[in-house]
Nucleic acid binder design. Structure first.
Length: 292
DNA sequence: CACTTGACCTGTCCGC
DNA sequence: TGCGGACAGGTCAAGT
């Protein structure tokens, strides 16, 4: 579920709560998702102070004073929820929250700090993972060696974007956008939203898309990602931020999960849902012309 | 090599 | 109400 804006929203939240806290204990029952040896956990996690929380692509990195880091991928249904010593932080309207009392049946890992606050790693579908690694080795994991540039980085330009996209001339543009080695952090929601913004059909081959369209796509992608971060990400079923709260981006979405509703540009034309590159795909048949 | 498809899991929703 | 099948926001491995 979580794409770049959701993971970034979690990072921002965790950065407010975690630094300075010291990990007192850890429990998990999930050898596949968190396979580190108990001895490493004892030596490098327990007693360590949390220094900071970083993000690269859709991966979170919690840096520890032991010179180790927790590296976490939420995949489709992962959540990282922090519960302060006095209970949940930021308890707003119940409708803001998608999680109840924790731990629950989806809780895979629980970290307890010396002040009694806790961090829960929940993951209903168990696709996510967590690794305790030496901080110096984090950039060397396979995923980071292959992953593309951050689309919101100041030095990432439209020229860079086109150059990377054009290395895959025969690819469907949506499949290329979703490929993490081309650009980091784009998933199904923001692929559909940015392609609608640029009026490009997701099944169009890259070689059939002109430079000006790719430039528009670059601008739309960055705008959509930034807007979603500003709105706290997209919550459909599972995603919540570090306080267990929903994000509101989907109420601003133009096509995603809006099948059967009118296209914002064409009130007389309804959004349709199809399948492109093996993924559910939302388009306006009027402004995104299907390739011949 | 470039591209596509299925597998990994669990839960939910939809049609019969 | 019960049951089977399709589907869900991500990545990899294996297939063509």
């Amino acid at each position: 579920m979580p794409e770049l804006p959701e993971v970034e929203t979690v990072r921002i939240g965790l950065s407010r709560f975690l630094p300075g806290r010291v990990i007192a204990s850890e429990t998990h029952d999930w050898p596949k998702g968190f396979p580190n040896a108990d001895a490493d956990v004892q030596e490098f996690l327990i007693g360590a102070e949390i220094l900071g929380v970083k993000r690269r692509a859709k991966v979170l990195i919690i840096e520890l004073s032991s010179n180790y880091s927790l590296v976490i991928h939420l995949k489709m249904t992962g959540q990282l929820v922090y519960v302060g010593e006095g209970g949940r932080f930021g308890a707003g309207h119940p409708s803001d929250s998608l999680v109840g009392q924790l731990p629950d049946t989806s809780t895979r890992v629980t970290l307890t700090c010396t002040d009694g606050s806790r961090l829960f790693f929940n993951d209903q579908r168990k696709f996510g993972w967590m690794r305790l690694l030496p901080t110096a080795e984090v950039p060397n994991i396979d995923f980071f060696k292959k992953v593309g540039p951050e689309p919101l980085a100041d030095d990432f330009t439209a020229d860079d974007f086109r150059e990377r996209i054009r290395k895959r001339p025969n690819g469907l543009i949506k499949a290329v956008l979703l490929d993490q080695t081309v650009v980091a952090g784009v998933g199904n929601i923001y692929a559909d939203e940015s392609l609608w913004g640029a009026k490009i059909h997701p099944a169009e081959r890259v070689r059939n898309i002109g430079d000006s369209k790719l430039n528009t796509l670059f601008n739309e992608l960055r705008a959509v990602l930034q807007l979603s971060i500003d709105k706290g990400g997209s919550s459909d079923k599972n995603y919540v931020d570090a306080e267990g709260k929903r994000g509101s981006y989907l109420s601003f979405a133009n096509v995603f999960r809006r099948e059967g509703k009118p296209c914002p540009r064409h009130p007389d034309t309804n959004i349709i849902k199809t399948r492109v590159a093996g993924r559910g795909t939302h388009t306006c048949p009027k402004c995104q012309k299907e390739p011949a």
